[in-house]
């Protein structure tokens, strides 16, 4: 990876939206899980809705130059 984590070829739409799509899917599954039940469903909800928060932590920790 170049110093700025960038400056290679132009990225395709899929490359640009891959991570955001997975994060959005995890969030939605999490939001729905807590409606379905307690116990394991709640764990799934926390994991799913936790994904965008972890993504923010990851980006601010490892992608900030």
């Amino acid at each position: 990876m170049s110093p700025a984590g960038a400056n290679r070829n132009r990225r395709s739409l899929w490359t640009i939206f891959a991570a955001p799509t997975w994060i959005a899917l995890a969030s939605l599954i999490g939001l729905a899980s807590a409606l379905m039940g307690e116990g394991v469903w709640n764990l799934m909800a926390w994991a799913g809705v936790g994904v965008p928060v972890l993504a923010a932590v990851f980006a601010l920790r490892y992608r900030t130059h």
Partner: peptide, 17 residues
């Protein structure tokens, strides 16, 4: 609008410098 701004960036990049 996210797409044109991210054409040359990896996901999550913040150019603080």
């Amino acid at each position: 609008l996210y797409a044109p701004f991210m054409r040359k960036l990896d996901f999550g990049t913040v150019r603080k410098s």
